[in-house]
Design a binder for these strands. Structure first.
Lengths: 213, 213
DNA sequence: CCGTAAATGTCGTCG
DNA sequence: CGACGACGTTTACGG
């Protein structure tokens, strides 16, 4: 049973319980994706007791959320210390795309000059801020997948940036590997240019071994 | 190693591998929350082989995503069929809140009459559409936690609904159990009323055993 | 610690 | 199957 941000109950059945070194607990079924049926995230603490003859775990975190597990039968029990994990190394996420685009602005349009990446504003950082050859500025929002919320995000930035006389007029470019129809429609409605970019092609442009000149 | 929507690599270390009945695979470390370091979601298929003397699993899905796992050493290996899971029963999510508010519009304001829940528009359903006693309509967006994206969502609806002469003028109410300061500020800036609602109180109102009349 | 944005998000629902 | 929104989102990154 979980009680916290919502209340949830899990009927009795065979499950896999995983207790991690940091006190977190996962309750998995034999299907579904990686999300457990029920869980407690760290930081939290586990206490073990016997309630009415049954093994019971109580897992609590600082926010007062509580996960109570009653064990009716143990099919198997195994314990092993794994030690610290070196962690996952990723390639191809938004930050990589941003870096490559900053170095290859031609992929986005003609005559763009980079002002800076992660240009700070009061409502969050603009992925890329550029100067346009014709004058004025260009704010670029980059997504791996271009959905509607990215258009909203860029719209907020444009509204704010256009109040700055040193930057105005500021136009917008929405760059993504894939742009959803609804996002494209909303972007066009707001005068925002959509550009599809190809990560692999950009990476090729960036790879010195593939450069011809 | 994962290759698909991005590329990712996980250095050799002690881990927990979980193979589920539907072919999905999780690779967990001894910390962090419920998200595995690496994984493959169903539907997918697992093939097992020996590559250069080492046990290797290849997990593929229909989209051509590939997860390759090389096993250097097995500390423990356990298999058990769990059967079909009865699943988690939740209480306190947005749909409950929406239902309770539809039945207790007084909690949101005076003189409101429900037109319908999930009022359909071209850009998505409005949680609650009401008529105001003074004429015109009221669109209500409900969230468990009121953040900025909910204000954006409601703003889009209002813009669209106000184009409909049968509904206009349409004002907005943003109802949530908790409203973030930034969301409140943006809502006020756009003339949207914010209302904090208490799920437990509403549930009490709805509980027939607690009714006085 | 709060606030914002990204995510191999996942998960449900509805067309 | 795609589109869209909710999620106990989780996770990473700033200030």
């Amino acid at each position: 049973m979980y009680s916290g941000r919502l209340a949830a109950e899990l009927p009795r059945a065979a499950r896999v319980l995983m207790f991690k070194a940091d006190g977190s607990v996962l309750i998995h079924s034999d299907g579904g994706s990686y999300k457990p049926l029920n869980w407690m995230s760290p930081p939290c603490s586990v206490s073990e007791s016997t309630v009415e003859g049954e093994l019971t775990f109580e897992v609590v975190n600082r926010g007062g959320e509580l996960l109570t597990i009653t064990v009716h039968e143990i099919h198997a029990d195994y314990k092993h210390a794994l030690g610290v994990d070196p962690g996952l190394i990723k390639d191809g996420v938004e930050s990589h795309l941003q870096k490559l685009l900053a170095e290859n602005l031609d992929a986005l349009g003609d005559g763009l000059t980079l002002v800076r990446r992660e240009y700070p504003t009061a409502i969050g950082p603009v992925d890329l801020l550029c100067k346009a050859a014709a004058g004025g500025s260009v704010a670029i929002e980059i997504k791996r997948r271009g959905e509607i919320d990215g258009v909203e995000q860029l719209t907020r930035y444009l509204e704010l940036l256009n109040r700055d006389p040193l930057l105005a007029p500021v136009s917008g470019i929405y760059a993504a590997q894939e742009i959803r129809p609804q996002a494209k429609t909303l972007a066009q409605d707001r005068g925002i240019t959509c550009v599809r970019v190809d990560y692999e092609v950009l990476k090729g442009l960036d790879d010195p071994s593939l450069r011809l000149f």
